[in-house]
Design a binder for these strands. Structure first.
Lengths: 115, 115
DNA sequence: AGAATAGTACTACCAAAGTCGTACTAAGGC
DNA sequence: GCCTTAGTACGACTTTGGTAGTACTATTCT
């Protein structure tokens, strides 16, 4: 994290997530088996791997409680990192970790015909 | 199928499966989110992509009804092909189809630390 | 025909999971 | 302090899915 460019000040705590070596493929598959979550990951990835975006930025038409649930699932599976920025919870895809652990996985997701 | 080497005679009908272009990534992820199914696929792949193996050959310690359920899930997701050979239902992984549609996916499965 | 084996349809059970609403917390602006 | 917004914990509901047993089908061999 020491070399990471953080575009906004006021960054605070990172929400709990598994270490890279603890990320499990079956759990990742389970998290990404939901089309909505693939969409979320694709949109976040489209912004680059050092950019954090809020839950509402992703633009999914679902109640906030549902979004909370999905983002949590992605975080706990190790797919995204979430940090608190004031009132927002901003996320980014853990591209480096996932590419190291599961080479090619994110390319599959990026190519998925789901918007 | 015309160039496929079939090691046994008496091959009969192929069970229903999705066409290669109809295989969906989220459905594949869902099917492979079960550790037992990853194990099944790994063992089948260890035999090569033109070799059919029966459900019991795979050597999973589960009642037959549970195996039937899992194999069906893999087939309907498009991950395996199943054919009837006498009393047996033999399966092989659809390596060519999956590699074409989702490059690298089977390598992830093969490398998964699940036995 | 009977026995044995492989596998399946059906059923039941329980757990997991997606969806949503509600009441609430956390933060920021006026 | 009040208002607004972002997000969460909790609960309820419905659907999905893993597991297993039972009765059965399909096939093969004697």
């Amino acid at each position: 994290m020491t070399t990471q460019l953080l575009p906004q000040a006021g960054q605070e705590e990172r929400l709990e997530q598994p270490e890279a070596q603890d990320i499990r493929l079956d759990v990742v598959f389970a998290a990404l088996s939901d089309p909505l979550r693939i969409t979320i990951v694709k949109r976040l990835m489209g912004e680059g791997d050092d950019v954090f975006r809020s839950c509402t930025w992703v633009g999914i038409d679902r109640p906030k409680s549902t979004l909370t649930h999905h983002f949590r699932a992605l975080r706990e599976a190790g797919i995204i990192e979430q940090r608190r920025f004031g009132t927002e919870r901003r996320s980014r895809v853990r591209v480096a970790d996932l590419s190291a652990r599961f080479p090619g996985l994110l390319e599959l997701v990026a190519a998925a015909p789901l918007e």
